[in-house]
């Protein structure tokens, strides 16, 4: 269990804090999602967990031990896969892996075997002797991930790992990442792509302006007690709204709280009788974008 306790940090020259008393508990054996718009503090939090940034206040512990202590005992325990292509374009794929394996102090025979495993895991065997600068965007992302896995980390920090890749590579990366907890590597996955987080994370936190807005299981966050209707052809008659307790929303949408099967059936019957066409009906579930908008009144992509 990774626990982040009241973490605060402000970059020099910035008036707003990048992290503002941020607290979070990240369980083991999962792909944990950190979702938030650009500037929410995801990368700063990841950098603090990776040990490359010293936050001004707060503490991070892994299984109750301070991170510095964990890292001192095993510096391969936590691995960072930065947002950019953090390797050497002028070196080949294998040379890059050999270099980072050397930095992780992997010994000769073990090093070669681990490099081969990582090449196979990331499907990079065919391009192992190509220079990294000649790889496509998707293959570069795979190499970035493979380097992160060299030391068999307990915790892998992935910072926006699918930015700028084609759909096929994205699918491959997401599948590979989702399989990591089974191999003993917990994952913290940051993204501003809600579809990705929704696809591979069972637990997640939504960040904005350096704070945690909401944290919990994906199911609990998406569960919705509200029913949302979208109707065609202008506003509903006030009498109908009053009878069913409909609250007007944006763009001809109406919200209905705690709707049961019977009340929903009655509403649909009245709409049909009044000749009002229904454009959309959402009941019991919402997506992460809607969760974020309901919390901040802003879109995730703003």
């Amino acid at each position: 269990m990774l626990t982040v306790d009241a973490l605060s940090h402000t970059y020099p020259g910035s008036s707003a804090p990048a992290l503002n008393e941020l607290s979070l508990s990240i369980p083991d054996g999962e792909v944990y999602g950190l979702l938030g718009p650009n500037g929410a503090g995801k990368t700063t939090l990841i950098s603090a967990i990776a040990g490359v940034l010293s936050p001004e206040r707060g503490e991070i512990r892994l299984d109750g031990q301070p991170l510095a202590e964990v890292r001192r005992r095993d510096r391969r325990a936590i691995a960072l896969v930065p947002q950019d292509h953090a390797f050497y374009p002028m070196l080949t794929v294998r040379e890059n892996l050999r270099f980072f394996a050397g930095i992780l102090d992997l010994d000769g025979a073990g090093q070669a075997a681990r490099i081969d495993e990582c090449l196979a895991f990331a499907c990079l065997v065919q391009v192992a002797d190509q220079r990294a600068e000649h790889l496509s965007g998707g293959l570069r992302r795979r190499l970035n991930l493979a380097i992160g896995l060299l030391g068999r980390p307990r915790l892998l920090l992935l910072d926006e790992p699918t930015v700028g890749v084609d759909p096929q590579s994205r699918h491959f990366l997401l599948e590979s990442i989702a399989a990591l907890p089974a191999a003993g590597t917990s994952v913290v996955y940051t993204s501003h792509y809600m579809e990705e987080v929704q696809a591979i994370c069972r637990q997640l936190a939504i960040l904005d302006q350096g704070r945690v807005l909401l944290a919990g299981s994906l199911d609990s966050l998406l569960r919705n007690q509200e029913t949302v209707l979208e109707v065609a052809g202008g506003a509903l008659p006030p009498l109908l709204c009053e009878r069913h307790g409909l609250q007007p929303g944006e763009d001809n949408s109406y919200r209905l709280s705690q709707a049961g099967t019977a009340s929903l059936a009655a509403l649909l019957a009245d709409l049909a009788a009044a000749g009002i066409a229904l454009e959309g009906l959402q009941h019991g579930q919402r997506n992460l974008e809607q969760v974020f908008i309901s919390l901040t009144r802003r879109s995730l992509r703003d």
């Binding site: 040990g51 896969v81 947002q83 953090a86 930095i103 992780l104």
Partner: peptide, 20 residues
């Protein structure tokens, strides 16, 4: 040239996270 590639690409950050 090499140093700026390392810094811009986040390689220095990665090396630092590896305890170098």
């Amino acid at each position: 040239s090499i140093f700026i590639v390392e810094r811009q690409g986040g390689t220095l950050q990665r090396l630092s996270s590896m305890g170098l």
